[in-house]
Design a protein around this nucleic acid. Structure first.
Lengths: 347, 347
DNA sequence: TTGTAAGCGTTATCAT
DNA sequence: ATGATAACGCTTACAA
């Protein structure tokens, strides 16, 4: 107990005594309840300021059934996301909204499905959270039906086919389409893509955008040009063999990390980007400008994704929609960033 | 209220009724108190399993004065750390320990000192947290004396001169020394360094290691070879001019990001790494292997740093040292990773 | 070993 | 507008 922090010592009762009013009045002042005389309110505030009184969160939660804590769950974090700035930028966005609206953020990562369930029980079940944001999860993550069934207020960062899901996502399909159409306009016709994990909607959407671009230009889709990947750099390098044997003039990689791996593979094969093969990525992480040649890519507003996911969740919490209401679903725009790897800069 | 999750409905009282015992007995069972008859204990557990009962965290905290939540505060996160995997990996480490020991993690980032104070009041003052981990903070962050004064249980991820501070850090000085000695053994004598922000202990230690290496080999320290930087890639690029005018044969960059910037600058100046200038970084982030040439660097165990910081904090929480006891201070080993940028591979 | 009852610091209902 | 007072769900003496 001696290692306990020294504030938080005061209670409502003590503040009330010092101010010469009752506990309830102080509570009203703290909660900005209107029916308190101005003079009294000021007197109470004075005591609160003087003493540095802070209401005890747990006591408050016990009666209000609200904690002002939201959770962020990122199932895939420990695996593929760890090397990537996505994670940090997304959290920065969430944090920004939380700070603004005086909420707090509890972070949940785990390395196994068992861990996920354990955490679900422990954190959701014991009432720690008012709601949760789920990011970067496979479409068929069992978490999703469970959240739905348990009627937890939650928001998905990422598109989802279920119409009951509140989600917000970047426009993966359009971004991919922009990337590929850019290559087409540069004169390319044999364009390969290194796709992402088939279970991720974002990967599906980027592949879809790839196909849409080709269709828009009446270029037949050749399955040999669609190479499996996993969003990682190593996945990109591993794809090189299959890319080269399909002899494309350009490659659209589903992530910048993948593009980096592809670049490495191409270089090892003795070819050059963009002279022999043009290359475009997706994400616009800092790595994109560190590569040589600098990577043409699609920039997605990750921090905004985070801050808006949080805003959406807090709106839902503070203004619960009635059960018939449709879910909120929103798509953020992306942007083509032209650098050297696509070959456009030499024209 | 209709947007409330559906579990958490049960209370101790209801479980007690179903099991035909009193509230306190159920409480004892839940808290593994020994003096409960085996038969009763089993009966109670059965009901708990059947009903999925979970104790209400807030109610529990109100009486135990513990939340089983620890905070992670990263003051510099929003500025320099956002593009870097440090952040994600550190949190993964903390999370790992938290999961293991059934604690939860609350994340606090902010973009301003004012925001930091506001958060301090809101989060620490209202009793949300049992303790905090502070990472990546300047030596003179006002947070540090305040935590000390308020007697908050806390741990710093990063060395600190104040002997009262419980900290854990990687061996920045030794790492830098290893990097520079590696260059010296490769035959270099004019070795420049691009340092980090002077207010960060990690930057100071890396600079110290640089000097120690030179001293160990009786190479005079030339201030012209010590170039200011800020840990970022742009800082590295910006340093190029000054590096080149000091005409070193090798450069030790305080971070891999910095090294990447230096590499870019050197290349733009029409020179080659490692032929014209050898280059070594620090951190071993994924970028290091994406660069061409791949970056020789010092690998630091970031996840371990996070998990051990958490372990230390939880140990302190669960076993409060008496006030006379010395602080826990611990340094983790680092490792030299030799790749192409130092020129060693061609020998 | 078990149960009764007090109390943790709030909010909220109900008088006044 | 203000003050008693009863919850909120749990832990923990204290009694039995």
């Amino acid at each position: 107990m001696e290692a306990q922090s020294s504030f938080m010592a005061l209670t409502l009762e003590e503040v009330a005594q010092k101010a010469g009013v009752s506990r309830s009045t102080v509570s009203r002042v703290v909660n900005a309840h209107p029916s308190v005389r101005d003079e009294v309110r000021e007197r109470v505030w004075q005591v609160i300021r003087d003493t540095g009184y802070q209401p005890h969160a747990a006591a408050r939660s016990l009666v209000t059934r609200r904690t002002r804590i939201i959770g962020v769950i990122i199932p895939e974090a420990v695996n593929t996301l760890l090397g990537t700035p996505f994670f940090a930028r997304f959290l920065a966005g969430v944090t920004h909204t939380c700070n603004l609206r005086e909420y707090n953020l509890m972070l949940s990562l785990f390395d196994s499905p068992a861990g996920q369930r354990e955490m679900y029980r422990r954190v959701l079940g014991s009432g720690y959270l008012d709601g949760v944001i789920v990011a970067s999860t496979p479409v068929d993550d069992p978490l999703i039906p469970q959240l739905l069934e348990d009627n937890v207020p939650w928001v998905l960062a990422g598109r989802h086919p279920d119409e009951r899901v509140n989600y917000i996502d970047v426009d993966n399909a359009l971004g991919a389409r922009m990337a590929v159409e850019h290559l087409i306009r540069l004169g390319h016709r044999r364009i390969a893509t290194v796709a992402g994990p088939p279970g991720m909607i974002s990967a599906q959407d980027r592949l879809l955008g790839y196909k849409q671009a080709l269709e828009a230009y009446r270029i037949p889709i050749d399955d040999a040009l669609i190479i499996p990947g996993d969003f990682t750099e190593d996945g990109g390098t591993a794809a090189t063999q299959r890319i080269l044997s399909a002899s494309p003039t350009a490659v659209f990689a589903a992530t910048d990390s993948t593009a980096s791996g592809v670049l490495k593979g191409i270089r090892e094969a003795g070819m050059q980007v963009p002279q022999d093969i043009a290359l475009v990525g997706f994400d616009d992480i800092p790595l994109a400008t560190s590569l040589d040649p600098a990577l043409t890519t699609i920039r997605q507003p990750i921090e905004e994704l985070g801050s808006m996911a949080a805003s959406l969740l807090l709106d839902i919490l503070e203004n619960p929609p009635d059960s018939g209401a449709p879910a909120h679903q929103m798509i953020l725009p992306v942007k083509l960033i032209v650098r050297a790897s696509c070959g456009a800069l030499s024209y």
